[in-house]
Each structure stands twice: as C-alpha cells, then as structure tokens.
Design a protein around this nucleic acid. Structure first.
Lengths: 384, 384
DNA sequence: CATAGACCTGAATCGGTCT
DNA sequence: GAGACCGATTCAGGTCTAT
C-alpha cells in the first residue's frame, strides 16, 4: 500500500521523467520516481515480485553507544542517537534484517543485485544473512574516508572506513557490471574493491534550520559509482532506507528510475526538494565507453564522479575552435567521436599527441581555465 | 595433549628464549615458543584456561571456487584448492568456527584480545559468531593490498583487500592498545582502520622446491603492526593456524612469546626453520615507543614543588582572555575562585571540561607556551 | 579583496575510580 | 551496578572572522 501523498504536479513530473528516462522502453507498472511514505517492510510488500533491477540499502547500524562524548575542547559530539537506530539486542536486529532482506530478495529481478552498507556494528550480520538467504556475494567494497572522525580517546584505531557488500540473487545470475565504465573512471586500471572518497560535508550536506538534516547522509560520489557500475540506463533502483534521498538524486542524474521508502516526514520533504532540483544528464553524456580505445593517463573520471565536473559540461580549447562534452564515465564526446581527454584533444587537432589536461578548458567565473586546475583542486581536497 | 616432537636442541633453545624474553618475569607454565603439531582444536584444548594474551587467527577462508581458473594467456592460476579449505556448506564451516572460537575464548586472559583475518567468503560469519559468543569488537581493519591479483575476467571489482577483526573478551575488558606506538608508526597521526601494505612476495615468500610453500602466507609487516599494537613485551601470542609461522617469526623479533598450532609436517618444518633464523630486536630498540598514558603522571603541584613554576606566577589562556595565579599548593586562583588547573580552565570558559595542561600558558623567552611544556621538561629531568 | 587563522563538526559499540 | 567526579584527549575540511 502506497501512502505517500504527492501533489498532482509532482506525480505528473515523475511520470514524464519515467517515460523520458526509459527512452522508448515500456515503463514498468511501478510507482517509480516516488517516495513511498511508511515502514520499509510494508512498503516493499506493496511492490510486485521481480520488478526491481538494483537495491541500495543503508539500514540502521545498530550502534551501541554509551554516554555522551565531549571533544577535548569541551564541545559536544553529535552522535547518532536517533530512535530508529535502537535495537534491544542482536536477535531483534537480526529479525528486522531478515524481514526486509526477504522482501528485497522477492522484489529483485533474477539478474538484479543488491548493495548494503554498514560498519562493524552490523555489517557482519548483514553479510552472514545475505549468504544464508541464498544471495551470492560478488564483492565487499571498502569506502575509505579521506576525512573521518578521529578517535578522541586514543583507545582504538581511527574508524576510517565503511563496508559495502554487493550481491546477486544466485551464483549463476547474470548480473550487470559495467566493467568498461569502471575502468575508464579509474585511470584505465581495473576498479578496485577499495574506494577513496570524502565524507559528505560542505554544500552537499543538507541542512534544516542550520543543523544537519540527517545524521548519516551519504556522499553522492559513492552512489554515483554504485549506480554507474551495476545498473543500466532506465533500470529501476530501490532504496528501502531513503533518508535524504541521495540514491534518488543520483539515480535521476544518471537516467535511472528510482523508488524510495521512508518513514519520517522531515526526511521525505528534504529528499523530494533535493531530487526536484537534480538535473538529469542528457543522452550523449550518459553513453558510457564501449570501446577499448580510450587510454587516459590520469583519473579524469574522478573529477566527474565527485562532482568537480558535471557530465554534460561543455569543454573547449582555449581559442574555442573545438568543443567536447563530458560524459558520465569520464570520457569526452566530440560529435560522434568519443575518447579520453588526451585522445580527443589530439584527434581534433590532428596531432600525434596532446595533453588533455592543459588543452581542454572549462568556464569558471566567466573565465576559461584548463581542466588541470580542477585536478589540482581535487588533489588538494582528496589527498591523504 | 601436545604431540609435537621437538629435538633436544630446539626444546632447549625455546626454553632459553622464553627466559630471556620474559625478562625476569616468571615464565608461564605453557609450551611457549613451540609449534604444537596436530588439529588446532585438539591442541588448544591441551592448553590452560586464561593463559593467552593475544590470539591471531588466519583460518581457512572457505573459498567457493568452481573449476580451475586460467589467465587470459592460458596459464594456470594457482588458487587455493587445498583439501583443508573445503567445507560442504556454511553449516559445516560455522560448526568448525564455533569450536575453535570457543577454545579461543577459554584460553584468552580476561583482558586478552583476538584478531581474525578473512575475505568476504568467511569474514562475515567470523564477525557474527564473535559477536554472538560475547566478544566485543573493537575495530575492523582493512588490509589494502598495494599489489593485488587482478580480476582476469573483468566481471567484478578487483578484490584488493582483506578484512581483520580485532575483539576483546567483553565490553568492559581492559585490552592492550599501544596508541602511542601506532601514532609514531603513522607519522604522528592516529593509526587508521585501513592499512596499506604489500602482499607477501619476493624474498619474504617462502618456497619449497621452487613453488610457494603456503598459498596464503601473510606479510610480516601485517603481523608486526598487529603484535606491536595489541601486546606487550613478554606476552604470549597464540596462532591456531600457524602455517609458515609468520606470527611466530614476528613475535620473536618483537620480544613476545608465541605458540603455534599446525597439522601439516611440511608447514611445520618451513616455519621452524624460519623462526630459528629470526633475530629478536634488542632491548633499546623495543623500548622506543612508550605510551603517554603509561608515563608517570605528573601532578601540577610537583612542578611548583620542585621549582619549575614559582608560586605567584601568572598563567593565561592563549588569547589572554583569562589570567590565573599559581599558588603554593599547586592550585590556581582566578579572582576569588580557586581550583585545579583543569577545574579553573573549565570554569572560566563555562565548559564541561578542560585540559588545563594545554589550556593554561606561561611566558617563556617572550613567548606564550602551554604548561604542558613544563611537564615534558620535568619528565625528561626526572627520568634520567 | 585576498589571506591567515579561529572555530565548528563528522555513523563512535572511545575512561577510570570511588562511592 | 549506577552514578558522581575527576582527568585526559583529536584529524581534516568547510565556514566564518579578523587583518
């Protein structure tokens, strides 16, 4: 039962978006591109079997925190103490986990896959249950945070990562993995199981009345990589713990359909607003590399992934003789041609080689600047 | 029942090593610095309850490999297909895991801790079982491999890490963590939960007749960090899955006692040879990293008492917003108020707490310096 | 206006001891 | 076992303020 009340405008917009995104393909009989208000297990029960291509789930971590924690300077640490993260025991947490995972299993198409994210408090229980239910684990992925919270007391190792598990419905399933796009995104090296990404902060962090809207908002760069790697355009992505809607916002940007389940009105409101503002990328930007030609010498893809450059952005050489469009996997398109920033640079100039970093420029405060500037900024921001 | 047969020479050497390592402390009534030959569960049952300080366990990974794997060029991949890594099902693996973990729990001292290492095939089951048995997880650690095996088929993310779990026997246990040593090792930054280390290869990789002696030999750097972080000199480290004895070799180098369980004669032979060659570090090398916390505590009054600060000296915070006068008994006076350096620090700031050592400053050669500087000088002077 | 520095804060199973 | 009270403790990035 879908209880989310949408305005007529929103429903229309969602429908239009679906038709556009699915791009000719029959739209599924699903409440796509909408937030379903209510308990996630109830909401999932309302959806048809075998209708979902990918599930991304960021369930409560079952943190077992003691008392208050104060920093050395006396300031208060705003830990996660929300009621939705309270479970009396492992048994209760396990029961809850089994329930929503059973629904997830039912909803996934035979070749669909699921992602879950967690910390050491809950990830082992999630992984064990996935295996026990017949899911086939494909990878465990480590999100290495560039800027984690330090360990104030100096009593343990700084908890500087979170773990994601990616699993298919069965050992034999033909799951989606965009190997080529991942390789392009990673400097023409295979994408590894450890991902270095900053936590969500600054402008990206959603605020309400000056304080953070949600205690555990995930960075868009994380979802970008997840969705780009394991879904195709037009696929339906379900997020049972929608929160502030990072999954929906990135899915929309990447031309995927999405469904979110969320209980709290505050989160729904923030999420809907955010997704309404997200702009889908245009067709050419979304095409990912199919050929093996491109060989970028630097991880240009990282700039795209982490939002320093938006897919669809038009780059040009300094004198604006040629233009190129940035695509989702970090490749460039010049007309029908696609390739790396270096390859396309040399191609348009009919030159043997070209350093794409200095050749291609972008507009910054009304000025043309080489994309190398962005690389420098990125390095400064991300470097360990 | 200890079934390992040692030569007289080896037994003697082991005994001498124990006496030297324990350094005056009564040697435990344990077969320390020896390899116990036999099934690890049987061997563990032969040891006394509460006798072990730390356990490092690298159990079989329960890899679920189908047929043979060949590289793109047709060459054969030497995967882990040894008979000891075959389990009929998760249930069998779980039963095995529960058995040896129960023994581990029994053997550990109340404040001892355990490390387990695994991949996504088994680590979730290990973690869940640790939690279910009452172990208290302290950290999960990611060993990020600088040179992992690539994913030849391009069907998944390159599996570039393994996961370790560090756990104490209970929530309230006073486990050992050499915070200072870890911080020193990490360029004066807190050691994080992600460790970047190369896999074991080159000269370090033990060979027998030209092929690797063990399929999953761990690098010594990994054990070095584990043992240095969570044991003290003279502690007893148990490794139930000893293999080629990396744990023993590093324990010996670091002045720790060790016990290894191993079934296979081939591994025992290689391991014993290797450990015999390992040289323990000398006293001074081992002493370098002393914990700040373990350093003798200095009451502020001692500085006054011994003349490092004269009663009547005026202290101030860094921005000189507040001033305080040192009194003869080691208390501070701010106006009519008096109290400890910490109490007065929090009082003037209206904060819950305050570290007076870093808050209050004194004038030294025309410069404001925290009184912690005086504490350091005092410690240096007293230590000699 | 640019730069330097102060201040704030992020999924955290984060103390010890005595009453 | 709960609670009071004392004491010791932090890294990186974003934002704001003072110079």
């Amino acid at each position: 039962m879908v209880t989310a009340v949408k305005t007529r405008t929103r429903a229309l917009r969602a429908k239009v978006a679906t038709a556009t995104l699915a791009n000719g393909v029959q739209a599924p009989a699903l409440p796509v591109n909408r937030i379903l208000k209510g308990d996630c297990i109830d909401m999932m029960r309302s959806l048809p079997t075998g209708s979902i291509d990918m599930i991304f789930a960021d369930p409560p971590y079952n943190l077992q925190l003691g008392g208050d924690l104060a920093r050395p300077d006396g300031s208060h640490v705003d830990a996660v103490t929300d009621h939705w993260d309270k479970f009396d025991s492992f048994a209760v947490y396990d029961r809850f986990t089994r329930e929503w995972l059973s629904e997830a299993y039912r909803l996934l198409k035979p070749n669909g896959s699921i992602w879950v994210i967690g910390s050491y408090h809950n990830i082992f229980r999630l992984g064990t249950m996935l295996q026990d239910m017949g899911f086939w684990i494909l990878n465990d992925i480590i999100w290495r945070k560039t800027n984690p919270m330090p360990n104030f007391k100096g009593t343990r190792f700084t908890n500087a990562h979170e773990t994601l598990i990616w699993a298919a419905k069965s050992e034999k399933a033909k799951y989606t993995f965009n190997y080529r796009a991942m390789k392009t995104l990673n400097d023409e090296l295979q994408m590894r199981s450890d991902w270095v990404l900053p936590i969500c902060s600054g402008k990206e962090r959603l605020k309400r009345n000056g304080t953070k809207a949600h205690p555990t908002q995930k960075p868009e760069s994380l979802l970008y990589r997840v969705i780009l790697a394991t879904t195709n355009k037009g696929d339906v992505v379900l997020d049972p713990f929608f929160g502030t809607g990072t999954t929906g916002a990135v899915a929309k940007r990447l031309g995927r359909n999405w469904i979110g389940c969320e209980r709290e009105d505050d989160y729904i409101e923030v999420a809907q607003e955010r997704i309404d503002l997200a702009l889908p990328l245009d067709e050419s930007a979304l095409k990912t590399m199919q050929s093996k030609r491109a060989a970028p010498k630097v991880p240009f893809g990282s700039l795209v992934e982490s939002g320093w450059l938006t897919p669809g952005t038009v780059l040009a050489d300094k004198k604006r003789r040629w233009q190129a469009v940035v695509r989702a996997d970090g490749s460039l398109a010049v007309g029908e041609d696609t390739g790396s920033i270096h390859g396309m640079g040399s191609k348009v100039q009919n030159a043997a080689s070209c350093n794409g970093w200095t050749f291609w420029h972008f507009m910054d405060k009304g000025e043309m600047k080489p994309i190398d500037v962005l690389r420098q900024r990125y390095l400064l921001a991300v470097e360990d």
